[in-house]
Nucleic acid binder design. Structure first.
Length: 293
DNA sequence: TGCATTCCTATCATCTGGTG
DNA sequence: CACCAGATGATAGGAATGCA
């Protein structure tokens, strides 16, 4: 089995502070996997354009666009027409942001969970320049790793989070970005998204959807992948696992029951898929996160 | 868009660990 | 020991993809 190689920028992680900053140059020779991790993530587009899939939303991005991604949100970036993009990615443990504490009642992390599901922010030129300066400073400090680096990084991160909160609160319609939704997607793919939305908890097959839309299964499979970056099965699975995670945390239903409710008529397969996408088994996931709530 | 081939998902059988 | 929930391994067949 061939081992997937990470881009150079990703090969140098040493993570003593649960903090990472790196530039990802995605030229299409490496497929971004689905990601799901414990750390909070900020994704800033330096150049080029692409698509970003976060949970069940599809965004397009270009230089100057920024994404804020909460931990446990499935996400995946994708090229558009094979054109490369360059993005700066910051990941950090929530604890790092809490290192600086003021009694002003403001939670710097609220942008990660109180932004009405809008992950994307388009920065104006001024803010872009300011952010890029801070990113440079963070990167320099991260690579230098001298005494008190963590303190400097925590301070820079605080600045960043407060500015982001201001930008989100401003909620200027000019700064908000239209979702890349059905209106821009090919009709056939938009129809598939609608269909999947309505039926993902049922036993649905590619051939069935293709018949519904009067196209061949292979054509549908190809177009869906081309437009969304997901295979159909991958997309359906992500929606099912997302719902399963909610049920695991918000209900006391048995894992077997939850598997059935989200569309898996085989518990074993549910286990296998869940573990592949989330990194841990359903039971363990519940144990780990329910007690932290 | 369809055929042929490859890949990998989904299923079944079985195992493991916890509990009574 | 029996029972149950959850985990693992092998593999058939459906899905993805290369090519025309």
């Amino acid at each position: 089995m061939k081992e997937k190689r990470l881009p150079k920028a990703l090969q140098t992680f040493v993570d003593p502070f649960h903090f990472r900053i790196f530039v990802d140059r995605n030229e299409g020779n490496w497929k971004m996997p689905f990601e799901w991790h414990e750390k909070l993530e900020i994704f800033y587009t330096i150049s080029g354009k692409g698509k970003y899939f976060i949970e069940d939303k599809v965004y397009t991005f270009e230089a100057g666009d920024l994404f804020v991604i909460n931990n446990h949100e499935l996400h995946k970036s994708q090229l558009i027409d094979g054109q490369p993009f360059e993005a700066l990615i910051i990941m950090f443990n929530p604890d790092l942001a809490k290192a600086v504490h003021l009694e002003d009642g403001m939670d710097p992390l609220s942008i990660f969970y109180e932004r009405h599901n809008d992950h994307q922010l388009r920065l104006d030129k001024d803010l872009q320049r300011q952010f890029e300066n801070v990113f440079d400073a963070m990167k320099t400090e991260y690579e230098r790793k001298q005494g008190y680096s963590q303190r400097i990084i925590a301070s820079l991160l605080q600045w960043l989070l407060v500015e982001l909160k201001r930008a989100y609160e401003k909620n200027d319609p000019l700064n908000s970005v239209e979702l890349y939704t059905g209106s821009e997607l090919k009709d056939i793919v938009a129809n598939v998204l609608d269909y999947v939305d309505m039926h993902y908890c049922e036993d649905i097959k590619l051939s069935q959807i293709a018949a519904e839309l009067c196209v061949s299964p292979s054509y549908l499979s190809r177009e869906f992948k081309k437009e969304t970056g997901f295979s159909l099965v991958e997309f359906i699975s992500s929606k099912r696992i997302r719902l399963a995670r909610e049920l695991l945390l918000k209900s006391n239903l048995q894992v077997t029951e939850i598997a059935g409710r989200v569309g898996y008529n085989n518990v074993t397969h549910f286990h296998w898929t869940f573990k592949k996408m989330v990194g841990t088994s359903p039971g363990n996931f519940r144990k780990m996160y329910k007690q932290n709530r």
